[in-house]
Design a protein around this nucleic acid. Structure first.
Length: 445
RNA sequence: GUGGCUGUAGCUCAGUUGGUUAGAGCAUCGGAUUGUGAUUCCGAAAGUCGGGGGUUCGAGUCCCCUCAGCCACCCCA
């Protein structure tokens, strides 16, 4: 019989333990940070009615959408982000939930786009959103969560770029380019990548702006100096536009609020050129770059939107949220060598080499687990040397070694696998002493 | 979706202008007098040369298609 070649689809991946362990750690960290601000978990179906997903229907999302007919002939699609499902979810349940509603959602999404480093067709998003409030407090809190997230994950060198769409929109209003804002923002977003001249050329070609208008828009994004300096210069540029003035005002409040919470000002960069591709953002925008690996792109982005669920309900639901790009972040951490090469999830290894004593091993392991310390008992009574080699390659921290001699004497040998030191621990009084010794070794290594 | 580069053991790669049974290092597994991770030594296993088709007496080497990875565009996490 011909074998079926084992393979995975383009952009879809298997996760081996060494990839999955840091992945789960990252998810746990995100959950912890989100919960520390009072966000609650939700989940929604992977599959939605196609009309739910295509509601906003730009050609781009349409192209990337995985869609098909289910067995009942319904047109369905796999979710390509967590924001659209949130919109539907909110429209359906907000009466019961009440506002403001703060939720986080960590789940897989699918996009049929071309793959690249850190970009896949199946990937995980870690969104958090606060809906039902326009308060600048929520804007500030979003910045704080992003900061805490990156710190908790282990980054110390990163920059959160912050902007407000209202500033740009205000200026575009003044210039009479309001209806071209999506195209112009998209061009502006490329400033760092392709340079001023090309952006200006693209604005003229794609948006029908005049050279003078393009120049005005670009001037806005070339302001230099500290955040406070930039803020000050922005004022006159948008003067006369109500939207623009409000945007500048809110930016100032967000910066002040984040500073008040004690965050180092250097971590925040007021950058009027960042725009985000998504055109549903209407207020503050965040993008987060790793200083050591800026080319991988933003690892945590988000912003404020006026009316999340406008397609699904007449109730106006303003909100703000951001999304941690888990897979991109893991790719970055891999590249920066930040991932420990741990292949075990239990810290304690127990070799099984006295064939007659399986019951004793299992009993002892159960007692250690009872103290909430993970133990792996080797499944075969192989040579001790081989078992230790296995323990070494998997990255165990300590080994509890016992054979006929030890069991007879009511002791075990406790070995620190990092230093190689070992000590004899008595079991005469039960396992409490052993557990305490294991804890003390684990707390050091 | 468009364009470019790449594809030989688990990993990193050799493989001469097409020429017999495709190699190395590392990793894996076993052994070197019965209970301690290293080094060393011995041995073993492991490849339909990504897959399919074509040219040829003969293809890992040349051509076409396809699949996958990377890069750029597009878009974005």
């Amino acid at each position: 019989m011909a074998l079926i070649p084992p393979r995975t689809l383009k952009g879809f991946r298997d996760y081996l333990p060494e990839a999955m362990i840091p992945r789960e750690q990252l998810i746990a960290t995100a959950q912890r940070v989100y919960r520390s601000y009072g966000f609650s978990p939700i989940d929604t179906p992977a599959l939605e009615y196609l009309e739910i997903l295509t509601g906003k229907g730009s050609d781009e999302t349409d192209r990337q959408l995985y869609k098909f007919q289910d067995h009942g002939g319904r047109d369905v699609g796999l979710r390509f982000d967590l924001t659209v499902p949130l919109a539907r979810f909110a429209a359906q349940h907000i009466q019961k939930l009440g506002t403001p509603f703060k939720r986080y959602h960590i789940a897989t999404v699918w996009r049929g786009e071309n793959t690249q480093r850190g970009r896949y067709r199946e990937f995980m998003q870690c969104d958090f959103d606060t809906i039902g409030t326009k308060s600048v407090t929520a804007d500030i809190e979003t910045g704080l969560v992003i900061h805490d997230l990156l710190r908790a994950i282990g980054f110390s060198k990163f920059t959160i770029r912050i902007n407000n769409r209202m500033v740009l929109n205000g200026l575009l209003d003044k210039l009479g380019l309001a209806d071209k804002s999506t195209e112009l923002l998209r061009s502006l977003d490329k400033l760092a990548k392709i340079g001023r001249d090309k952006v200006a050329a693209e604005m003229i070609a794609a948006s029908g702006a005049t050279a003078a208008q393009a120049d005005e828009v670009l001037k806005l994004s070339e302001l230099a100096g500290s955040n406070a300096d930039i803020l000050q210069q922005l004022g006159p540029l948008v003067a006369g536009s109500e939207t623009g003035e409000e945007g500048v005002g809110r930016l100032g409040e967000v910066l002040a609020g984040i500073a008040a919470a004690g965050i180092d000002d250097a971590r925040l960069l007021l950058d009027v050129s960042i725009a985000r591709g998504l055109d549903y953002y209407t207020g503050v925008i965040f993008e987060t770059f790793l200083d050591d690996l800026p080319t991988i792109g933003s690892v945590c982005s988000g912003g404020r939107y006026d009316n999340l669920a406008g397609l699904f309900t007449k109730q106006e639901l303003p909100g703000i949220g951001a999304s941690l790009g888990l897979d991109r972040l893991l790719a970055a951490m891999e590249e920066l060598d930040m991932l420990a090469k741990v292949r075990t999830t239990a810290p304690v290894f127990m070799p099984y080499f006295d064939r007659e004593r399986l019951g004793d091993y299992l009993a002892l392991a159960a007692q250690i687990r009872g103290a909430d310390i993970g133990v792996e008992v080797f499944p075969e009574p192989k040579k001790l040397g081989q078992q230790l080699k296995y323990a070494d390659s998997r990255g165990f921290s300590v080994a509890v070694i016992a054979g006929g001699n030890e069991f007879a004497a009511r002791t075990v040998q406790l070995k620190n696998l990092h230093s190689g030191d070992s000590e004899e621990v008595s079991l005469a009084e039960g396992s409490a002493v052993l557990v305490a010794r294991i804890r003390s070794i684990l707390s050091i290594v």
